[in-house]
């Protein structure tokens, strides 16, 4: 547990003393809930179409695969044509790409980022390392199966996959969203305890709230 997250007594500027328990005072304890789709089928279809045509990616490169995302912004591939944009903050992003191997230390940050994203949200596992560990299959510090820890909508295989493979992956994801099959956020909320158990089994020093909104 980090020092700043421990319970402590603070003296205010006007001499008052009060107790602070950061995990309860600074964070919201409510667990995620399953979010139902819009009440009308037509509206939900419209929203799903808009979601599929406007995918905002969180700019968080977790491993070497992040290098394959950069060319997508360049004139040669230009993913902006397909409504795909990069956002610098998890609050505004819809798609988290786990680009390559994921070490346990990064997994902690990834979980926080994922939980700060707003539903509906999607996860793409990029490269072999996210599927079965890839070349890091016997490493002591990288996770082997990403879908134990986060609800993955789509894997893109390869070591590394080319930017073309990524574009094809985005198109597949779009078809899934339009068909209403990409409900990763709801899977996460429904199986929240199972995911948390898995996450805490590998992250030994869990020094954050269970759910970061």
């Amino acid at each position: 547990m980090k020092k700043e997250l421990e319970k402590r007594t603070v003296t205010g500027p006007d001499g008052q003393t009060f107790e602070v328990e950061p995990l309860i005072d600074y964070y919201c304890e409510a667990h995620p809930t399953v979010q139902p789709p819009a009440y009308s089928k037509i509206i939900e279809n419209l929203f799903n179409w808009a979601r599929s045509e406007s995918i905002w990616i969180l700019g968080f490169g977790t491993g070497c695969g992040a290098i394959e995302m950069r060319p997508l912004m360049t004139p040669r591939f230009d993913a902006y044509r397909y409504g795909i944009q990069w956002r610098p903050t998890p609050r505004q992003a819809n798609l988290l790409i786990i680009s390559g191997y994921l070490s346990v230390k990064t997994l902690k940050r990834v979980i926080r980022s994922y939980e700060q994203m707003q539903s509906p949200k999607y996860v793409i596992g990029l490269g072999s390392c996210t599927i079965n560990g890839g070349m890091y299959w016997d490493s002591y510090n990288t996770i082997k199966r990403l879908d134990d820890y986060l609800p993955v909508d789509l894997y893109i295989v390869g070591c590394m996959p080319r930017p073309e493979a990524l574009l094809e992956g985005f198109n597949t994801l779009k078809r899934m969203i339009r068909a209403g099959n990409a409900e990763g956020a709801n899977t996460y909320a429904a199986n929240f305890d199972w995911y948390k158990t898995n996450q805490k089994r590998v992250i030994h020093d869990w020094d954050m709230p269970d759910y970061n909104w």
Partner: peptide, 29 residues
Amino acid sequence: AARVGRRRGIPIYQNYIDLIKNYGLRTSI
């Protein structure tokens, strides 16, 4: 601006879609 960088850039109707999507998100804090 994208053409200056020799890109095609976003579709002309992209802003409408972004707006619909953002209004259509399910959660907010």
